[in-house]
Amino acid sequence: MTIPATTDILISEVGPRDGLQSVKATMATVDKCRWIDSLVAAGLREIEVASFVPAHLLPQMADAAEVVRHALQHSGVTVMALVPNLRGAEAALRAGAHKLTMPVSASAAHSMANVRKSPEAMVEEVRAVLALRDAIAPGVRVEAGVSTAFGCTLQGQVPEDDVVRLAELLAEAGADEVGLSDTTGMGNPAQTSRLFKRLFSTIGERTGAAHMHNTRGLGLANCLAAYEAGVRTFDSSLGGLGGCPYAPGASGNVVTEDLVFMFEAMGVRTGIDLDRLMAARAPLQAGLPGEPLYGMTPEAGLPKGWAPQPSAAQG
């Protein structure tokens, strides 16, 4: 993971992909582009803008290549795309994405529902994507996200040993980063701390992002636990938009506005302007009229006289 020298952590905004693919309405391409522009203006430096999947499965992502090409006009921003397989990866690489993220579920039941492959087969798919990347776009980073790492609405409990072993296999396959995703919002802070510490001890610097959900109200607490365990990249979605269409009951990404407020109030620099970040809700609401948005910070506003604290981040 690459964190700018002027910040302590990297907030990776996933709303334009994870958020939009989870709502019934399809946002117009022009509205997606305006929303992405507003996120960049707020200081976001990594944005997951699209998912390269068949349009008949996720019509919300039918314009993925066009959206990637628009986002590439912004300098200093890592344009990321989700790809479930080799075909999607090739399309994303041809479009010019800077970074690919691949979902690899620790739950066999969720893996079959989400990508129609076993976790073991997905490790091989990651290996094939890495070979393709090396052949046509060697500068592109490939992240493997271990989904359902904290539990699965289809399978139930997911053994922690299975999660760590899968992460180890993905690192051995050559993934640049291996993160953990609380796809179903079943995680708790003690579990989050335990799993990420195990990950750091097993795969070291390849340990990637914490992708937490707020389904049961523990999103921020889990992010803080991940931070204290050593994680420095966090996925979140403006307005808490999103979830997983193939995991029943999995709603509620961590709200970017609340996450940024928490870290900045702690003196952990994000490089994001909170006022501009909250203003980025306007183009989102314009593009998805009537879609509910969440967040305690936008609702309450910033405290009187509030200012980010001086950097006090742990190394």
Rank of each mutant, 00 (worst) to 15 (best):
A5M: 10
A5F: 11
T6L: 10
V14G: 07
V23G: 01
V23P: 04
R34D: 10
L39N: 04
R45E: 00
E48V: 07
F52D: 02
V53A: 03
L57E: 10
A64F: 05
A65M: 02
A65N: 02
V67F: 01
R69I: 07
A71F: 11
L72I: 02
T78H: 03
R94S: 07
R94W: 01
M102R: 00
A106H: 05
A113I: 10
N114H: 07
V129P: 05
A137T: 12
G139I: 00
G139F: 07
R141W: 15
E143R: 05
A144V: 05
G145Y: 00
G145N: 10
V146F: 00
S147V: 15
F150Y: 09
C152S: 08
Q155A: 15
E160C: 08
V164F: 06
A173I: 03
L180P: 03
S181W: 03
P189H: 07
S193H: 14
L195G: 02
F196C: 03
K197I: 05
T202D: 09
I203L: 15
C223N: 12
A229G: 03
V231K: 03
G240P: 05
L241Q: 04
C244G: 13
A247F: 11
S251D: 08
V260M: 09
E264M: 00
A265E: 07
A265Y: 06
M266I: 12
A280N: 14
A280T: 13
L288G: 05
Y294M: 11
L302W: 08
L302Y: 12
A313T: 00
G315F: 12
